[in-house]
Amino acid sequence: MMLAFILLGALAIVGGVITIAAKNAVHASLGLVGTLLCVAGLFATLNASFLAATQVIVYAGAVMVLFLFVIMLLNANQPVTERDPVPYVRELAGIGGTLLAGAFVVLAFTFKDPRPLAEGAEALRGGSALVMGETLLTRFLLPFEAVSILLLVAIVGAVALVQRPAAQPDGVPDELEEPVGAPQEERRQVPRGAAPALMQTRGAQDGEVRA
């Protein structure tokens, strides 16, 4: 178990390095998938099997697929070679990283067990769904519900953002249209079938997802 833990930890770090070092965005996200899987393995070696399964289902199986989906749809897998738009971004990132590492070191040396390890392992009872559910829905009910409302708000927000009025579907550039004031009347006359093919609009390199 100890050996597996160390190996998985090392692999997780390798995946993390690939994530930030890979030039191709798809390779980078595959590195992240590897890291997430290794973290799931770490959970499994710590006897938290429910957490491990959920980690794979939610993060590696759904979230990362959506990441890759967006990368492929936007064709964003090419490396960007322009000058960085944010000044001193590397230096700032270095400072942030150092601060974070320092915080972790402080955390590691001042950490005290809230209760003895044997007692904690006893309470975990193999990390099955039963124990998790019991804890989440009794002691942590309020945070649990708050998080679910937060996620709901995020979903509603995403739908609201996507549902904004579309650019002119008739192929006439916006500036040639009538000025602001009566855009809705204008759209009303556009027949429904007049929209150009989806790929054409996307080809304009504005990188906007419409589907």
């Binding site: 429910f50 399964a53 959920t54 199986g61 193999g126 099955s128 769904a129």
Partner: peptide, 10 residues
């Protein structure tokens, strides 16, 4: 595995 069905879904 105790989490049989979850592991399978994963």
């Amino acid at each position: 595995l105790d989490t049989g069905i979850l592991a399978l879904l994963a």
